[in-house]
Design a protein around this nucleic acid. Structure first.
Lengths: 195, 195
DNA sequence: CCAGACTAACCGACCGTTCGGTAGGATCGA
DNA sequence: TCGATCCTACCGAACGGTCGGTTAGTCTGG
């Protein structure tokens, strides 16, 4: 059976959680296996009993984030109805996914492309950006978003806004995930000026 | 005299320009002195003839970015007049500074805090964020920005939006700096929905 | 011939990773 | 029931390689 037969202190999953946190503080390249070992309360060599190495930890983390982000695009709210509504749905839901999987998405957004794993992640991020840009363009074509702003530029700005959350949002802080998602969607659609 | 007496191929300034570009592709921790040497067409040891080391290159780069950003806060348009106008001025001018000094600001925004230099840069970034948040709060207090969005949250969102430009803006692309600055300020103040 | 620009060779430290070995619970034949 | 045996989780030591930085010069324009 796959049931745990003794109270082992570490699993690939628990090591991943520790590694992602350290990566996000020190940066992936700035983190040594010794750093990870200390944070996990284990020796450097023991880590290799659970995972194949440093890069696999990165791969596991960014895959998780990408699954979450692409999952939103597959939801009914992102595939059915008016483009502007699908656009608003994606903005709000991406915020919630980002909050829900904050450390993983943070790591994904900081990947630079130094290894094969990182380059694959960047490739998928570009595809994701493209999908959302199409959504914004469709909403503009419908006349439901301002036409005086360039569609591609609009998509990029909105995207930057959502993604910037990883730089300041902290769970347990003054703002809950849904609150931020609503505020962000409201800002994007109606702006800061009183109507 | 400090005038160059012959056509020396390298100066601290030219090395800084090269280093910042490489740092932004590979990341600071992911860049070796050998990488910098190859990019500059020089040997590793020669770099030490011009600058004291890797960290000084980082220090020079982030200082330049911080000088640019804080410079905006000292401009008349940021210190005189209604808070909402000063806020709009800062948004627009920060965009232009960011575009003008793109590689330096990009590096600044990616600093993680692994060295003393990086930690000082993070400290100054926090002070800058605080100054702009005060500006937003004053504009909200005047009733010139929506009051139903939290002032701190508003400032953070706007900030994230401006800073996200380093992730996608490329000089020579389809959008000029002033165009982006106008689009961004318009989005922030009026939103995406047609009025 | 000299000062400044530049280099080859090198250094100790640390990198990610590997390997031989061990503690101790699970399993099993008798 | 009990020793023998196996397996999993873990560790200490060391590997080849790369890191940022240093040293002891060479080369060159003036």
């Amino acid at each position: 059976m796959a049931v745990a037969k003794r109270a082992d202190r570490h699993t690939p999953e628990s090591l991943l959680a520790v590694a992602v946190d350290v990566f996000n503080v020190r940066g992936y390249d700035g983190t040594s296996m010794e750093d990870l070992a200390k944070a996990a309360g284990i020796t450097k060599s023991s880590i290799y009993h659970h995972v194949s190495g440093k890069e696999e930890l990165l791969r596991l983390a960014v895959s998780r984030a990408l699954d979450g982000l692409f999952g939103v695009l597959a939801e009914p709210g992102a595939t059915e109805g008016a483009a502007v509504d699908r656009f608003a749905h994606v903005i709000r839901r991406e915020c919630l996914v980002l909050v829900d999987m904050l450390p993983y998405v943070t790591l994904l957004l900081r990947v630079r492309g130094n290894t094969a794993t990182e380059r694959e992640a960047l490739e998928l991020r570009r595809e994701f950006d493209h999908r959302v840009a199409e959504l914004a363009a469709a909403a503009i074509a419908d006349g439901d978003l301002r036409a005086d702003l360039d569609p591609r530029l609009t998509a990029r700005l909105v995207f930057g806004l959502v993604n910037s959350m990883v730089e300041w949002y902290r769970p347990g802080g003054p703002d809950s995930g849904p609150e931020v998602a609503d505020a962000l969607a409201s800002l994007v659609l109606d702006g800061l000026r009183p109507r």
